[in-house]
Amino acid sequence: MISFILILIVSAFFVGWINCAVSNFSGRKGPGIFQPIKDIIRLIKKGSVYSATSSFIFRIAPAVYLSTVIVAALFVPFGQEKAFLSFNGDFILFAYLLGLGKFFNIISALDTGSSFEGMGASREALFSMLAEPAFFILLGSLGLLTGYSSFYQIFNAIHYTFSVTSFISYSIGILAATIFFMLGIIENSRMPVDDPKTHLELTMIHEVMILDNSGFDLGLILYAGCLKFAVYGALIANLFFTSLFPLYLNVIIFFGIQYLYAVLIGTIESFIARFRMNQNPQFIFALSSVAALIYIGVMILIGKFS
Protein backbone atom coordinates (compact mmCIF):
# COMPACT_ATOMS: atom_id res chain seq x y z
CA MET A 1 0.00 0.00 0.00
CA ILE A 2 2.86 2.36 0.86
CA SER A 3 4.25 2.04 -2.66
CA PHE A 4 0.92 3.01 -4.16
CA ILE A 5 0.76 6.17 -2.09
CA LEU A 6 4.37 7.03 -2.94
CA ILE A 7 3.72 6.42 -6.64
CA LEU A 8 0.73 8.77 -6.48
CA ILE A 9 2.91 11.42 -4.82
CA VAL A 10 5.75 11.07 -7.35
CA SER A 11 3.32 11.09 -10.28
CA ALA A 12 2.37 14.64 -9.29
CA PHE A 13 5.76 16.08 -10.14
CA PHE A 14 7.62 13.49 -12.22
CA VAL A 15 6.96 15.18 -15.54
CA GLY A 16 7.74 18.48 -13.82
CA TRP A 17 11.18 17.13 -12.98
CA ILE A 18 11.76 16.12 -16.59
CA ASN A 19 10.75 19.56 -17.83
CA CYS A 20 12.93 21.15 -15.18
CA ALA A 21 15.96 19.17 -16.34
CA VAL A 22 15.28 19.98 -19.99
CA SER A 23 14.98 23.70 -19.31
CA ASN A 24 18.10 23.69 -17.16
CA PHE A 25 20.09 22.10 -19.99
CA SER A 26 18.82 24.62 -22.47
CA GLY A 27 19.67 27.44 -20.12
CA ARG A 28 16.12 28.52 -19.35
CA LYS A 29 14.35 28.99 -16.09
CA GLY A 30 11.57 26.52 -16.68
CA PRO A 31 8.14 26.25 -15.14
CA GLY A 32 7.77 24.91 -11.61
CA ILE A 33 7.72 21.18 -11.06
CA PHE A 34 4.01 21.27 -10.29
CA GLN A 35 3.10 22.85 -13.61
CA PRO A 36 2.12 19.57 -15.36
CA ILE A 37 -0.25 18.52 -12.58
CA LYS A 38 -1.72 22.02 -12.50
CA ASP A 39 -2.31 21.74 -16.23
CA ILE A 40 -4.07 18.44 -15.69
CA ILE A 41 -6.32 19.91 -13.01
CA ARG A 42 -7.13 22.82 -15.27
CA LEU A 43 -7.99 20.44 -18.10
CA ILE A 44 -10.23 18.38 -15.87
CA LYS A 45 -12.24 21.48 -15.01
CA LYS A 46 -12.67 22.43 -18.65
CA GLY A 47 -15.45 21.52 -21.06
CA SER A 48 -14.83 19.22 -24.01
CA VAL A 49 -15.10 19.16 -27.75
CA TYR A 50 -15.98 15.83 -29.28
CA SER A 51 -15.48 14.82 -32.85
CA ALA A 52 -18.73 14.24 -34.71
CA THR A 53 -17.29 11.04 -36.11
CA SER A 54 -16.51 9.51 -32.75
CA SER A 55 -18.68 7.14 -30.75
CA PHE A 56 -18.93 5.80 -27.21
CA ILE A 57 -15.51 4.17 -27.64
CA PHE A 58 -13.89 7.58 -27.77
CA ARG A 59 -15.72 8.70 -24.63
CA ILE A 60 -14.95 5.65 -22.54
CA ALA A 61 -11.35 4.96 -23.65
CA PRO A 62 -9.57 7.56 -21.45
CA ALA A 63 -11.34 6.20 -18.37
CA VAL A 64 -10.26 2.66 -19.28
CA TYR A 65 -6.71 3.82 -19.92
CA LEU A 66 -6.33 5.54 -16.57
CA SER A 67 -8.00 2.71 -14.65
CA THR A 68 -5.62 0.14 -16.10
CA VAL A 69 -2.62 2.21 -15.07
CA ILE A 70 -4.03 2.75 -11.56
CA VAL A 71 -4.68 -0.97 -11.12
CA ALA A 72 -1.23 -1.76 -12.52
CA ALA A 73 0.26 0.59 -9.92
CA LEU A 74 -1.42 -1.52 -7.23
CA PHE A 75 0.86 -4.40 -8.18
CA VAL A 76 4.12 -2.62 -7.48
CA PRO A 77 5.61 -3.55 -4.09
CA PHE A 78 7.87 -1.43 -1.94
CA GLY A 79 10.86 -3.52 -1.00
CA GLN A 80 9.72 -5.71 1.82
CA GLU A 81 6.31 -4.06 2.01
CA LYS A 82 3.79 -6.10 0.10
CA ALA A 83 1.90 -4.53 -2.76
CA PHE A 84 -1.84 -4.06 -2.55
CA LEU A 85 -2.33 -6.93 -4.96
CA SER A 86 0.24 -9.68 -4.98
CA PHE A 87 0.16 -13.28 -6.13
CA ASN A 88 2.27 -15.66 -8.20
CA GLY A 89 2.51 -14.43 -11.76
CA ASP A 90 1.16 -10.98 -10.97
CA PHE A 91 3.61 -9.40 -13.39
CA ILE A 92 1.82 -11.15 -16.25
CA LEU A 93 -1.39 -9.42 -15.26
CA PHE A 94 0.56 -6.16 -14.85
CA ALA A 95 1.82 -6.29 -18.44
CA TYR A 96 -1.52 -7.32 -19.86
CA LEU A 97 -3.31 -4.56 -17.96
CA LEU A 98 -1.10 -1.98 -19.63
CA GLY A 99 -1.90 -3.77 -22.88
CA LEU A 100 -5.61 -3.31 -22.25
CA GLY A 101 -5.06 0.42 -21.80
CA LYS A 102 -3.15 0.56 -25.07
CA PHE A 103 -5.86 -1.35 -26.89
CA PHE A 104 -8.45 1.23 -25.92
CA ASN A 105 -6.11 4.12 -26.70
CA ILE A 106 -5.56 2.77 -30.18
CA ILE A 107 -9.21 2.15 -31.00
CA SER A 108 -10.14 5.53 -29.58
CA ALA A 109 -7.66 7.13 -31.98
CA LEU A 110 -9.18 5.18 -34.86
CA ASP A 111 -12.64 6.23 -33.73
CA THR A 112 -12.09 9.80 -34.88
CA GLY A 113 -11.51 8.75 -38.47
CA SER A 114 -8.51 11.05 -38.75
CA SER A 115 -5.61 9.97 -40.93
CA PHE A 116 -3.07 11.40 -38.51
CA GLU A 117 -4.45 9.62 -35.51
CA GLY A 118 -4.60 6.37 -37.46
CA MET A 119 -0.91 6.80 -38.19
CA GLY A 120 -0.07 7.23 -34.54
CA ALA A 121 -2.26 4.29 -33.60
CA SER A 122 -0.53 2.06 -36.12
CA ARG A 123 2.88 2.92 -34.73
CA GLU A 124 1.80 2.52 -31.14
CA ALA A 125 0.34 -0.93 -31.82
CA LEU A 126 3.49 -2.14 -33.57
CA PHE A 127 6.05 -0.67 -31.17
CA SER A 128 4.35 -1.79 -28.01
CA MET A 129 4.10 -5.31 -29.44
CA LEU A 130 7.85 -5.30 -30.05
CA ALA A 131 8.64 -3.99 -26.58
CA GLU A 132 6.64 -6.66 -24.79
CA PRO A 133 9.04 -9.65 -25.01
CA ALA A 134 11.82 -7.75 -23.20
CA PHE A 135 9.65 -7.33 -20.13
CA PHE A 136 8.70 -10.99 -20.02
CA ILE A 137 12.21 -12.29 -20.60
CA LEU A 138 13.49 -9.96 -17.90
CA LEU A 139 10.91 -11.00 -15.33
CA GLY A 140 11.39 -14.62 -16.31
CA SER A 141 15.12 -14.33 -15.68
CA LEU A 142 14.64 -12.55 -12.38
CA GLY A 143 12.20 -15.28 -11.41
CA LEU A 144 14.79 -17.83 -12.42
CA LEU A 145 17.42 -16.11 -10.33
CA THR A 146 15.30 -15.90 -7.22
CA GLY A 147 13.05 -18.91 -7.66
CA TYR A 148 9.86 -16.90 -7.22
CA SER A 149 7.22 -15.61 -9.55
CA SER A 150 5.63 -12.49 -8.12
CA PHE A 151 6.90 -8.91 -8.04
CA TYR A 152 6.99 -8.84 -4.27
CA GLN A 153 8.81 -12.13 -3.78
CA ILE A 154 11.28 -11.50 -6.60
CA PHE A 155 12.30 -8.07 -5.34
CA ASN A 156 12.36 -9.24 -1.77
CA ALA A 157 14.70 -12.09 -2.64
CA ILE A 158 16.95 -9.74 -4.57
CA HIS A 159 17.40 -7.53 -1.51
CA TYR A 160 18.65 -10.44 0.52
CA THR A 161 20.88 -12.02 -2.07
CA PHE A 162 22.41 -8.92 -3.61
CA SER A 163 24.88 -8.32 -0.84
CA VAL A 164 26.14 -11.88 -0.79
CA THR A 165 26.39 -12.91 -4.42
CA SER A 166 28.98 -11.94 -6.97
CA PHE A 167 29.41 -9.06 -9.35
CA ILE A 168 27.25 -10.81 -11.86
CA SER A 169 24.18 -10.21 -9.77
CA TYR A 170 25.03 -6.51 -9.61
CA SER A 171 25.43 -6.33 -13.33
CA ILE A 172 22.15 -8.18 -13.70
CA GLY A 173 20.53 -5.59 -11.46
CA ILE A 174 21.94 -2.77 -13.54
CA LEU A 175 20.94 -4.40 -16.82
CA ALA A 176 17.47 -4.97 -15.40
CA ALA A 177 17.25 -1.32 -14.41
CA THR A 178 18.30 -0.35 -17.93
CA ILE A 179 15.52 -2.41 -19.40
CA PHE A 180 12.88 -0.98 -17.09
CA PHE A 181 14.26 2.45 -17.91
CA MET A 182 13.96 1.94 -21.66
CA LEU A 183 10.57 0.28 -21.34
CA GLY A 184 9.35 3.30 -19.39
CA ILE A 185 10.57 5.56 -22.18
CA ILE A 186 8.92 3.49 -24.89
CA GLU A 187 5.68 3.13 -22.93
CA ASN A 188 5.50 6.86 -22.43
CA SER A 189 6.61 7.70 -25.94
CA ARG A 190 9.60 9.79 -25.03
CA MET A 191 12.89 10.37 -26.83
CA PRO A 192 14.57 8.72 -28.61
CA VAL A 193 11.57 6.69 -29.77
CA ASP A 194 9.05 9.47 -29.93
CA ASP A 195 9.29 13.21 -29.52
CA PRO A 196 6.38 14.72 -27.60
CA LYS A 197 7.46 18.24 -28.44
CA THR A 198 7.72 17.85 -32.18
CA HIS A 199 5.80 20.30 -34.35
CA LEU A 200 4.73 17.92 -37.04
CA GLU A 201 1.93 15.45 -36.50
CA LEU A 202 3.48 13.09 -39.03
CA THR A 203 6.39 12.38 -36.72
CA MET A 204 4.51 11.76 -33.50
CA ILE A 205 3.27 8.57 -31.96
CA HIS A 206 1.46 9.13 -28.71
CA GLU A 207 0.71 12.82 -29.05
CA VAL A 208 -0.94 12.42 -32.41
CA MET A 209 -3.23 9.72 -31.07
CA ILE A 210 -4.81 12.09 -28.61
CA LEU A 211 -5.21 15.06 -30.96
CA ASP A 212 -8.97 15.04 -30.59
CA ASN A 213 -9.14 14.51 -26.86
CA SER A 214 -9.91 17.56 -24.81
CA GLY A 215 -10.96 18.67 -21.35
CA PHE A 216 -11.60 15.93 -18.82
CA ASP A 217 -10.50 13.14 -21.17
CA LEU A 218 -7.21 14.77 -22.03
CA GLY A 219 -6.60 15.34 -18.32
CA LEU A 220 -7.11 11.65 -17.62
CA ILE A 221 -4.76 10.63 -20.43
CA LEU A 222 -2.03 13.03 -19.35
CA TYR A 223 -2.30 11.92 -15.76
CA ALA A 224 -2.14 8.27 -16.82
CA GLY A 225 1.15 9.15 -18.54
CA CYS A 226 2.54 10.70 -15.34
CA LEU A 227 1.41 7.68 -13.34
CA LYS A 228 3.01 5.27 -15.79
CA PHE A 229 6.36 7.03 -15.40
CA ALA A 230 6.09 6.79 -11.64
CA VAL A 231 5.20 3.08 -11.88
CA TYR A 232 8.26 2.28 -13.97
CA GLY A 233 10.38 4.44 -11.70
CA ALA A 234 9.08 2.49 -8.72
CA LEU A 235 9.97 -0.80 -10.41
CA ILE A 236 13.52 0.44 -10.93
CA ALA A 237 13.70 1.68 -7.35
CA ASN A 238 12.68 -1.77 -6.17
CA LEU A 239 15.89 -3.17 -7.60
CA PHE A 240 17.96 -0.90 -5.35
CA PHE A 241 16.30 -1.04 -1.94
CA THR A 242 18.24 -2.89 0.66
CA SER A 243 17.18 -4.71 3.76
CA LEU A 244 20.01 -3.05 5.66
CA PHE A 245 18.31 0.34 5.87
CA PRO A 246 15.18 1.24 7.80
CA LEU A 247 12.04 2.16 5.93
CA TYR A 248 12.51 5.93 5.87
CA LEU A 249 15.92 5.58 4.21
CA ASN A 250 14.38 3.37 1.57
CA VAL A 251 11.76 6.03 0.97
CA ILE A 252 14.59 8.47 0.35
CA ILE A 253 16.19 5.99 -2.06
CA PHE A 254 12.83 5.74 -3.79
CA PHE A 255 12.58 9.47 -4.33
CA GLY A 256 16.23 9.69 -5.30
CA ILE A 257 15.88 7.06 -7.98
CA GLN A 258 12.68 8.57 -9.33
CA TYR A 259 14.47 11.93 -9.52
CA LEU A 260 17.48 10.37 -11.24
CA TYR A 261 15.17 8.66 -13.71
CA ALA A 262 13.42 11.93 -14.54
CA VAL A 263 16.70 13.79 -14.94
CA LEU A 264 18.06 11.05 -17.21
CA ILE A 265 15.01 11.29 -19.41
CA GLY A 266 15.44 15.05 -19.51
CA THR A 267 19.11 14.66 -20.41
CA ILE A 268 18.36 12.28 -23.23
CA GLU A 269 15.71 14.61 -24.50
CA SER A 270 18.15 17.51 -24.51
CA PHE A 271 21.05 15.82 -26.25
CA ILE A 272 19.71 13.09 -28.52
CA ALA A 273 17.57 13.49 -31.60
CA ARG A 274 14.63 11.23 -32.26
CA PHE A 275 15.32 8.11 -34.30
CA ARG A 276 13.96 7.79 -37.77
CA MET A 277 10.59 6.13 -37.48
CA ASN A 278 11.61 3.09 -39.50
CA GLN A 279 14.56 2.43 -37.22
CA ASN A 280 12.46 2.28 -34.10
CA PRO A 281 11.51 -1.39 -34.51
CA GLN A 282 15.15 -2.48 -34.53
CA PHE A 283 15.91 -0.37 -31.49
CA ILE A 284 12.93 -1.65 -29.54
CA PHE A 285 13.46 -5.25 -30.47
CA ALA A 286 17.12 -4.98 -29.53
CA LEU A 287 15.90 -4.46 -25.99
CA SER A 288 14.83 -8.09 -25.99
CA SER A 289 18.38 -9.13 -26.71
CA VAL A 290 19.55 -7.22 -23.64
CA ALA A 291 16.92 -9.13 -21.71
CA ALA A 292 18.19 -12.37 -23.25
CA LEU A 293 21.66 -11.40 -22.03
CA ILE A 294 20.27 -11.21 -18.52
CA TYR A 295 18.73 -14.62 -18.98
CA ILE A 296 22.05 -16.13 -19.96
CA GLY A 297 23.77 -14.32 -17.09
CA VAL A 298 21.28 -15.81 -14.67
CA MET A 299 21.79 -19.23 -16.20
CA ILE A 300 25.54 -18.93 -15.56
CA LEU A 301 24.92 -17.67 -12.06
CA ILE A 302 22.75 -20.56 -11.00
CA GLY A 303 25.04 -23.01 -12.74
CA LYS A 304 22.59 -24.47 -15.21
CA PHE A 305 24.54 -23.46 -18.25
CA SER A 306 25.42 -26.91 -19.43
Partner: peptide, 14 residues
Amino acid sequence: EKKKLISVEPTWGC
Protein backbone atom coordinates in the same frame (compact mmCIF):
# COMPACT_ATOMS: atom_id res chain seq x y z
CA GLU B 1 -19.91 17.29 -17.99
CA LYS B 2 -23.45 18.27 -17.08
CA LYS B 3 -22.27 21.67 -15.92
CA LYS B 4 -19.77 22.26 -18.68
CA LEU B 5 -19.83 23.35 -22.24
CA ILE B 6 -19.76 20.29 -24.49
CA SER B 7 -19.66 20.78 -28.22
CA VAL B 8 -19.48 18.41 -31.14
CA GLU B 9 -17.26 19.45 -34.03
CA PRO B 10 -15.66 17.74 -37.02
CA THR B 11 -12.48 15.79 -36.37
CA TRP B 12 -9.40 17.99 -36.14
CA GLY B 13 -7.74 17.83 -39.54
CA CYS B 14 -4.45 19.39 -38.45
